[in-house]
Design a binder for these strands. Structure first.
Length: 637
RNA sequence: GCCCAUGUAGCUCAGUCGGUAGAGCGCUUCCUUGGUAAGGAAGAGGUUCACCAGUUCGAUUCUGGUCAUGGGCUCCA
């Protein structure tokens, strides 16, 4: 007699040791159909496993995250099987589940798009067979013998800790080394798609074998797959590189790889972002500073960058003296701090800098505005006494919250603590880490802790924003620095008339202006809020006689700080409207004789609605207020 | 930096099984003077197909290299 206890404490008895599937079916057939695996004493097991003794059992369902992971892991097996069917010489290595699907690293010839389709078709055959995954436990030697022709698997087997059960999973003829668990049968994979391939090194080690990584995604429900594919399509349509070209915002050129050229319209947006930034920072007591782009080697040696960041720095020799182009703003900030003596009464000292930095990123890492070699950080260095840490960090968090909310971005926080390789005393780290932790707790938002992920010079808080498609991006960061004040011997005079070492934080909110710009393009899909839109209004005269009057109106808007163009081409009104809509211009103003006579405007907004007979005064008041308040939503006239 | 793919007019792309290139949009001019998502016609535009070599009578097309872009890996004091 076996007693099974369910999560709700209900108990069921079985005459003979049941499998998980038996137990699931005893609840109902429908329930069993949605079961993926089960959990006993915190261990995930196949539904096919026999329960030998009285146990508390909970089921992992298709709707659970864990269930989806299991499905995807099984999908990786199916993909591996399909590859082996088509390419018998391929050697499998590892095939884990990742955030967005699964992959399998395989030692084989490079795979093309067409090959991917073939593999996917083969997978569908396997899925149709609805075969189960059979688990088998073997000895280490048996496993090694079985995978004798696959050095990768042998390496993995040899690394398995002594005493660990070595299990194999068989699906059809295909056998793979695997811990499990797996779905009851391949028929549960209702939607699967292979997405892309890439090279990857065995064990992520450049000196090891180059493998082919095949990426795929799968779902229990075909509709979910379609929704996912639609989301990818949507993301492609929003691609900031495409929109950046179409909306005439920025471009890249061979003459400066990884360094964007901003066009007039891009800079209009850029300046709107900066105006806003300056306003928020002034409110919070920041001053703005600027330090040189290029400074001597000596400075970088003092800061430690020459030793630790050299390979990413651009250097140059002038008049027999070595210089480096700054990859970070902090050393310049140190020099600025030292231009005068400081009293504890002046602290905290908040010095902002929109600093242009250059970092020589690997050529293969460059990607639109998201990964560039030259970018502007909305940096600031805050110098303070140790007991000001918590409040200052809290202030930065509140500032970041205001800024992100302005764009309709939510965010979450992650705290990174002391890494193995680090400088400073235990006591310093404790003060610093507690300061950050207390600040987040005072702020009152949940946060993740990344143990050991801090910089070697201090702990940090990273702020990850979430965009309109649900993608997250790390933008803001607040880093405590215990190294630079030491290296530059920064001091302030305390109330005790003694010299003290200030605590310093580096912080950014946008992060990289360029990257944030790119994120905004994708977040808004090019349809920017009015205050940010590169062209806020376009004026369309219905015929050419009205062009001079249209220009008068343009002038009227321009003196009210509205970014405005006139489309005086000899095209039909329909066509000009269509093009203005496709350029996502928030205000489309048509000018005819009526408007001229009555001194009114007809205004079409992005939603396609047209409001006729808006007086000039009414228009200017509403639009200027809307822009001044940086309203996220569309304007109602 | 590594693997794979791509690189043709300002933009999006077609094409040449090796015989010195085409479309749509955009641009210019003309006709149309239009009332809320594409009016019509003509024309210009490629130092000739990213760059440099090689094979060939002949290369944009084949081969090799370089550069750039994209996807990933890696890196991220």
């Amino acid at each position: 007699m076996i007693q099974i206890t369910f999560p709700d404490n209900a108990v069921k008895e079985f005459d003979a040791p049941p499998t998980g599937m038996d137990v699931a079916k005893s609840i109902s057939e429908g329930f069993a159909r949605n079961c993926v695996a089960m959990e006993i004493e915190g261990q995930a097991l196949d539904l096919g496993a026999v329960i030998e003794k009285d146990s508390a059992v909970s089921f992992i369902m298709a709707k659970d995250d864990k269930g989806l992971d299991i499905l995807r892991h099984s999908s990786a097996h199916v993909m591996a099987e399909a590859v082996l069917n088509l390419y018998p010489d391929a050697k499998l290595t590892i095939g884990p589940v990742v955030e967005d699907g699964f992959y399998y690293d395989i030692d084989m010839a490079p795979v093309s798009e067409a090959d991917l389709e073939k593999i996917e078709a083969e997978m569908k055959k396997i899925i149709k067979a609805k075969a189960g995954f059979e688990r088998r436990v073997v000895t280490r030697q048996q496993a090694i013998d079985l995978f004798a022709d696959n050095p990768f698997k042998v390496e993995l087997i040899n690394e398995l800790p002594e005493g660990e059960e070595i299990s194999l999973y068989q699906n059809g003829k295909f056998v793979d080394l695997c811990r499990g668990p797996h779905i009851p049968n391949t028929g549960m994979i209702k939607g699967v798609k292979l997405l892309k391939t890439s090279g990857a090194y065995w064990r992520a080690d450049q000196s090891r074998e180059q493998l082919q990584r095949l990426y795929g995604i799968s779902f229990f429900d075909k509709k979910k797959l379609n929704a996912y594919l639609t989301m990818i399509e949507e993301a492609k349509k929003r691609d900031h590189r495409k929109l950046g070209t179409r909306l005439d915002l920025f471009s890249f050129h061979d003459e400066a790889p990884g360094m964007p050229f901003f066009h007039a319209k891009g800079i209009a947006m850029w300046n709107a972002l900066l105006d806003y930034w300056r306003m928020e920072h002034k409110k919070d007591g920041y001053v703005e500073t600027k330090t040189p782009v290029m400074m001597t080697r000596q400075l970088w040696e003092q800061s430690g960058h020459w030793e630790n960041y050299r390979e990413n720095m651009y250097t140059s020799t002038i008049d027999d003296e070595e210089y480096a182009i700054k990859p970070m703003n902090c050393p310049g900030g140190m020099i600025l701090f030292k231009t005068k003596s400081h009293s504890y009464k002046d602290l905290p000292h908040r010095a902002g800098e929109i600093g242009l930095v250059h970092r020589h990123e690997l050529s293969g890492a460059l990607s639109g505005l998201f990964r560039v070699r030259a970018f502007h950080q909305d940096d600031a260095h805050i110098f303070m006494t140790p007991d000001q840490i918590q409040e200052e960090v809290l202030n930065v968090l509140k500032l970041a919250e205001r800024v992100y909310a302005r764009f309709g971005l939510s965010f979450h926080l992650e705290l990174s603590t002391r890494p193995e390789k680090s400088i400073g005393t235990d006591e310093q780290w404790e003060t610093a880490t507690n300061g950050l932790r207390n600040a987040i707790e005072a702020y009152g938002q949940e946060f993740m802790i990344n143990e050991g992920d801090g910089a070697f010079y201090g702990p940090k808080i990273d702020i990850h924003i979430k965009d309109a498609l649900g993608r997250t991006w790390q933008c803001g960061t607040i880093q405590l620095d215990m190294a630079l004040p030491e290296r530059f011997d920064l001091t302030y005079k305390g109330a005790d008339n003694e010299k003290h070492r200030p605590i310093m934080i580096h912080r950014v909110v946008y992060g990289s202006m360029e990257r944030f710009f790119g994120i905004l393009v994708e977040h808004f899909a090019g349809k920017f809020p009015l205050w940010l839109a590169p062209v806020q209004a376009v004026i369309l005269p219905i015929n050419q006689e009205l062009a001079p009057y249209a220009k008068e109106i343009q002038h009227l808007l321009a003196v009210h700080d509205i970014r405005c163009e006139v489309d005086e081409r000899s095209e039909t009104l329909k066509k000009k409207i269509r093009e203005a809509q496709l350029d996502y211009i928030p205000l489309i103003i048509t000018i005819g004789d009526k408007e001229k006579e009555d001194k009114v405007l007809s205004v079409r907004t992005l939603d396609g609605k047209v409001k006729m007979g808006v007086t000039h005064k009414e228009f200017l008041t509403k639009v200027c207020t809307h822009i001044r308040d940086r309203v996220l939503e569309g304007i109602e006239l």
